[in-house]
Design a protein around this nucleic acid. Structure first.
Length: 612
RNA sequence: GGUCCGGUAGCUCAGUUGGAUAGAGCAACAGCCUUCUAAGCUGUGGGUCGGGGGUUCGAAUCCCCCCCGGAUCACCA
């Protein structure tokens, strides 16, 4: 709740008590922004009071309005005017109040303001990204990475200590397939010899395996075998499984090859992460955690929390929790996904005093995390019961889901490169035009590339983050991502404009006009006022984004703020304003908008160019 | 079949602790650069908020039924 809402809430409570003898609770105080078609800044919905008042809504609104304007309580009088429309009481707040608010925003660092009343000295671990090492990252991973990064930033802004982590799925049949295909068809190809990024190189062999494998299956079926058997009996599959077994046994040759090929993949991932602007405080590898998981399960078995079937497999009975029975160890003693996640949790808890664990994983795994939560709780992990599965929606293409093997994936590296190239081209076009109409000096090619990088990635990131994370979203590769309208570049542009004005203003410290002076005839205009009001909302927006785990909330706010500013910028001059006090106010306002945009975009992982 | 999520303008999306005539962007059309960056600003057209019932001063928002789409219910991850 903002300061304004706080004050008004108290005053309204006093008003209805005095007027109608009614004790109002917080729920009944419904305040909302006044719709633009009515005069006023903030609106009280008075319907909750009409029953007690036993009067028509409009009359109740008028009475409360009059009471607020003539507030007899010693509080600062902040309501200047009111008008009543049916059950809606529109209040106009004094300029002096808004100026005080602006002053306090200017003097207090944004983050302190948000965290201030809600200091949490607790540790949150955020797991995100979590790639397999058999193929490069695609658009689905991009959404995951951007959400994970942003959520970590947002929770930090809300006072959490955050550890970002990644669990790399570096072992298993999938990587054996790539290894095998590389051995058979690779002729010793390396990232250096081919000029390919390591993750792409490995991905190519994963695809190659699938192609050759399908050929074998088709052949077997042509010779009369049924499909199910053909899939089992295909020599390539048998070889891959044999390789996996050797890996588990620690066979030196297989392990060496595995280490070599994974190192290529990691070099490739590092590049992608760097370009995307994400990083991790601690990376875990499943090859290190799955054994830990096994021993945890064995312990649980000994403690009677799990049970063993005749074939030797180990299960958890979750029927009391309304779920099924869940396999934890196969009959041959090998581990499954769940086992590994338990092991990973164990190691993490040894490494960090985790108060809250957040898994950024797609919504297709909701069942898995429901089960994991119960299992971790049973095994005594304090964060297990309350673990957060930050379950986000899929990125879909016009024809449906992305599928690696069918070649319908949008590659992360390609997409980022394309966005940056588009941004550069747009910049060059704009620059040609703007040479004629404004006196900006052209950028060097390096500066231009840097701006294109920020803007291209800004467009991509905003495009993904502005969608409610819980929902599936659509990406159409045929249509390029916009750079106009409700986009990242729009917000970056707004920022760059402000920076340009500030550069030209030459004034480092600007003195705000005093409340008295601007309470005179030359008070705040509607656009200035809307901006201040919007700026006041920011702390509660950040809190909401944290509570809801939603970077989209930040996007919506940043867009609204940029819209407000652009409209103001269009209607009023800042530097050419003759009244010194007004000029100072506008400069302060512009600088504060820029600071807020910078803070908000930082929460989204979007960089801002000083000019564009 | 059970469970969960979604269905809002031609397209992509906001808006759900119940509030005024449901909002943006894109696309279309019409204006605005000798003036702080036109990646901008202003305007026009565009809607049975999937359908039907209910709750009440008031429902896109809450409840029930139905239709459509997706996910999931693996000795895959």
């Amino acid at each position: 709740m903002s300061k304004l809402e706080n004050i008004l809430s108290q005053q309204v409570k006093s008003a209805v008590k005095e007027l109608y003898g009614m004790e109002a609770d917080d729920k009944m105080i419904q305040l909302q922004k006044t719709r633009p078609e009515f005069e006023g800044n903030i609106t009280l919905v008075v319907f909750p009071f009409v029953k007690a008042a036993r009067k028509a809504p409009a009359q109740v609104a008028s009475e409360i309005g009059a009471w607020l304007v003539n507030d007899k309580i010693v509080n600062d009088k902040i309501v200047n005017k009111f008008n009543a429309v049916q059950g809606f009481l529109n209040l106009t707040i004094a300029d002096s109040f808004w100026l005080e608010q602006l002053q306090s925003i200017v003097s207090e660092p944004i983050n302190d303001k948000i965290v201030n009343d809600k200091i949490i000295n607790k540790l949150m671990m955020v797991e995100y990204s979590s790639p397999n090492t058999n193929k490069p990252l695609h658009l689905g991973h991009v959404r995951n990475n951007l959400l994970g990064w942003s959520i970590a930033k947002i929770q930090e802004a809300n006072g959490w200590k955050v550890v970002k982590t990644n669990i790399v799925n570096d072992r298993g049949i999938h990587i054996c397939k790539s290894m095998l295909a590389w051995l058979k068809f690779g002729n010793g190809e390396t990232p250096e010899s081919s000029g390919k990024k390591g993750d792409h190189l490995i991905g190519d062999y994963y695809v190659r395996f699938d192609k050759e494998y399908r050929k074998q299956v088709a052949e077997l079926m042509a010779n009369g075998m049924d499909e199910e058997n053909a899939k089992k009996e295909a020599p390539l599959m048998k070889e891959a499984q044999a390789m996996l077994l050797k890996w588990e046994q620690g066979d030196k040759q297989v392990r060496d090859l595995w280490a070599k090929m994974n190192s290529w993949v990691y070099a490739g991932f590092d590049e992608t992460y760097r370009m995307m602007g994400v990083s991790f405080d601690k990376i875990y590898y499943e090859s290190n955690t799955y054994l830990e998981g096994k021993s945890e399960v064995e312990k649980g078995l000994a403690a009677g929390q799990f049970y063993r079937r005749e074939d030797g497999s180990v299960w958890a009975d979750l029927t009391k929790d309304g779920l099924d029975e869940k396999l934890l160890l196969r009959a041959d003693g090998t581990s499954v996904y769940m086992t590994q996640d338990i092991g990973t949790a164990k190691l993490r808890y040894q490494d960090f005093p985790i108060d809250k664990m957040v898994y950024v994983v797609g919504n297709e795994q909701e069942y898995h995390f429901k089960v994991l939560s119960i299992l971790l709780d049973r095994l005594g992990f304090p964060f297990g019961k309350e673990l957060v599965h930050f379950s986000y929606g899929m990125v879909e293409l016009p024809n449906g889901k992305m599928k690696s093997r069918e070649g319908t994936v949008v590659d992360a590296d390609d997409l980022m490169a394309q966005m940056i190239a588009d941004a550069k081209q747009i910049y060059l076009q704009k620059n040609d035009q703007s040479q004629i109409t404004n006196n900006q000096s052209p950028m060097t090619n390096d500066q231009c590339d840097e701006v294109a990088r920020m803007v291209g990635l800004g467009a991509l990131k905003y495009f993904i983050l502005k969608v409610d994370p819980r929902k599936n979203m659509l990406f159409n590769p045929e249509e390029s991502i916009d750079f106009n309208g409700n986009t990242g570049p729009f917000i970056q542009y707004t920022y760059a404009r402000i920076q340009s004005v500030l550069r030209k203003s030459n004034s480092k410290a600007v003195q705000l006009p005093t409340a008295q002076r601007s309470n005179s005839a030359s008070g705040l205009n509607a656009k200035e006022l809307a901006l201040i009001q919007r700026l006041c909302d920011y702390p509660s927006v950040v809190r909401q984004a944290g509570d809801e785990f939603s970077p989209a909330v930040i996007c919506n706010y940043a867009y609204a703020l940029a819209c407000d500013f652009n409209s103001f910028y269009h209607d009023y001059s800042i530097l050419n304003e003759p009244d010194e006090a007004v000029r100072a106010l506008r400069l302060t306002l512009a600088a504060t908008v820029a600071k807020t945009i910078l803070h908000a975009m930082n929460l989204l992982g979007i960089e801002l160019p000083e000019r564009m």
